[in-house]
Structure formats: structure tokens, C-alpha cells
Computed example of a mutant assay.
Amino acid sequence: MEVAKPGFSEEQSLLRQGYRLIAGVDEVGRGALAGPVTAAAVILPHPCPFPWAELVRDSKLLTPSQRQGLARHIEAQATAVSVAMVEADYIDKVGIARASLEAMQRAVAGLNPTPQYLLIDYLKLPQMGLPQKGLRDGDSLCFSIACASIMAKVARDQRMTELDRLYPGYGLASHKGYGTAQHLACLRRLGPCPVHRRSFAPVREVLTPLKLGAHGERLATEYLRQRGFSIRETNFRSPEGEIDIVAQKGELVVFVEVRTRQSKAFGTPEESITRAKKARLVASAQAYIQSHPDLPPACRIDVLAIDMRRGRPARIELIENAVQL
């Protein structure tokens, strides 16, 4: 089934009313878990007799190469183009609805010349003080809005590719911050990076246990110091795995696995260490020993279990030789 092309009916109606500087406005990235929400505003000459105009569609229906090619044409032949981004930290502060509106307002404010009329995908921007119309499915039906959607999408995709280089491991360049299975798996494995939207439920759900774990490790460090241990290192990482705390007391070195729980629904903290986890702890401890030839010969692996059920003080227990080294 052939997809209908965005048309010029809205622009033609406005031209008959005497408007000449008509801006299409759209935003992208509203539902992503990471990166900015991005808006674009585009003023095109009318009529628009360019051969590439036949290829314009809602940006979601185009391939990346098609969008990039059309964006170059739009940039070259539009009367004005403006793109604006609102970053993840501000989205978390004000909410995605307000952030999306602000991105569109900034894009419109960046146009030179100032538009006489706004055609906006679905929404309205009363704060702009300009005549305007919000169109349901505007990016599919209205040519000017479709062009704005292309410019916004290309700009945001480029930004996500740049962010992928800054924060590798999440695949931001491929899924562009949306909640794909790959992205969620990376998020669970690595935790959020600075451009993740912490107010969004999938990120918040990952962040909560990370905060709990970090708090548990702070309690564990203090507990060990109070009992005469010095802390050699925290969060030691090797190809084999991670050790939460490496502590020393006299001629004894202890590799400490911190286990924190708020509920016994899945067993006690010490019961949550699987056979595979024990093997990784042993391998990580051996990697640490090999990389530190000055260590005393006496070493062991302990589990420090922290029960942090609400309404009661934290229960902390050091289980010595919990894993045989």
C-alpha cells in the first residue's frame, strides 16, 4: 500500500489569506530514554517547485540516507531553518511535555525572518504570540511539518551518534536512545549514563537498585573501618568480574562482596550469591593477587550482608570465608 504524500493544502489556504512566511514545526525524541528532545522549524518558499519535494514524507517513514539527502536539500533551499534541543537533565526537571513545547518554542524563536504563521504537528504554542494551527498527524499530511520532522530527526540522530562516542557501550548510535531490548539490556548491565532520562520509568527502575547498592557499599566501608580494616580499593574490576571492596587488617587481605537487600522475598543477601558468582569472585580475587605481588600471603573472600528493610536499622553481618579462595 502506497503511503500518501504530505500535501500543500494548509499552506495554499494560508497563502490565499495573505500569509507568506509559513513555518512548519515538529519535534522528535519525545519517547526516548536517553538524549535530547529535538524540534525544528522550517519556512519554505511557496510555491515549492523543487524535484526533491516529491520524496518528502513523515521522517519516520524514510530511511536514514533518504532523510539525510532531503535534509541537505531543505537546508539549501528553505527560507529559514532552526533546530533546538532540550537536554535530558532539563527533561527530568520539568517533564517531557513541557520540555517538548520548549524545544519547539526555541526552534521558532531561532527563525530569521520571523514567521507570520505556524503549522505545528498536533500541538499549539500560545506563548509564541503568533497565528497558528495544530494538525493531528501533521507530519504525514502537511508538507512544511514533514520537512520540519526530517530536519529534527537528522539533527537528533547526529547528536545521538556523537553521544555514543562519549558514552560507549549502550548502542546509542543504533537505537538513538529508544527503549529497544538491546538498550534495556545495556542499561541493566551498565547503569544509566549522564544523558539518560532518570525520570523515565525504565531508567528509574534500573537506578533504584543501583542507589541501594551504592548506599550498601558506603555502609560496608564504614563498618570495616570501625573494625580495624583499612580500605585498599573499592570496585576493583578485571576481565573476570568485580570486587566491591579490598580491605586489609595487619597481614590479612580480605576481598569483600557486599550484598544489600530491602526484602527477604528472594532470600537473604548471602543466599543470593550463585555458583557462577562465586567462581567470578575467586577469579577476580586471583587477578588482584597476581597484579599486586606485594600482598601478604593470607587472603580470604568474605561476604558482608546488609539487611536494609524499611522501618528498622540496617543489620550488617560479616561472613568470613564465605567463598573458598
Rank of each mutant, 00 (worst) to 15 (best):
T268C: 09
Q12R: 14
R315C: 08
E205K: 14
S284C: 10
K278F: 03
T161S: 13
H46F: 15
L21Q: 14
A76Y: 07
M160L: 14
A152V: 10
E27T: 14
Q286V: 13
R189D: 12
A220F: 06
R188T: 10
E10T: 06
A148G: 13
A103V: 03
L325Y: 12
A71M: 03
A99H: 00
L184M: 15
R98W: 05
P192Q: 01
D58H: 02
A39Y: 10
E320S: 06
G228M: 09
D92W: 11
G177L: 03
R261W: 03
G35W: 03
V42W: 00
I289R: 15
A298Y: 13
S238K: 07
M85K: 12
A287L: 10
T221A: 14
S144R: 02
D89I: 11
A276G: 09
A71N: 04
E233N: 07
R280D: 11
D164P: 00
V303I: 15
R98D: 08
R57I: 01
L62G: 06
G29C: 05
D157F: 09
D26I: 14
P209G: 12
A23G: 13
A88N: 13
G177T: 03
G250L: 07
V154P: 05
D137E: 12
Q262G: 06
C142R: 01
G267L: 12
A23F: 11
I91H: 09
N235F: 04
V154D: 04
G250M: 09
A4M: 12
L172Q: 02
P269V: 05
A39L: 13
R106N: 10
E271Q: 15
T161P: 03
Q262T: 15
R237C: 07
A276V: 13
P47A: 04
T79Y: 01
A78E: 04
L252A: 11
R232W: 09
L118E: 05
G171P: 06
F266E: 13
P131C: 04
L14Q: 01
A39I: 13
Y90F: 10
T38A: 15
L111K: 03
G267R: 13
A99G: 02
L190K: 09
I319K: 02
T260Y: 00
Q77G: 08
G138Q: 01
E205D: 14
P51H: 09
F255C: 08
S291R: 12
Y170G: 01
A53Q: 04
Q290G: 05
L172N: 04
V154S: 03
A71S: 09
A103I: 02
C147P: 12
T63V: 09
V256W: 01
E11P: 07
V86Y: 04
V256H: 01
K264P: 07
A23I: 15
E10K: 14
Q226F: 05
M128W: 02
F200I: 02
G191Q: 05
V25W: 08
P47Y: 06
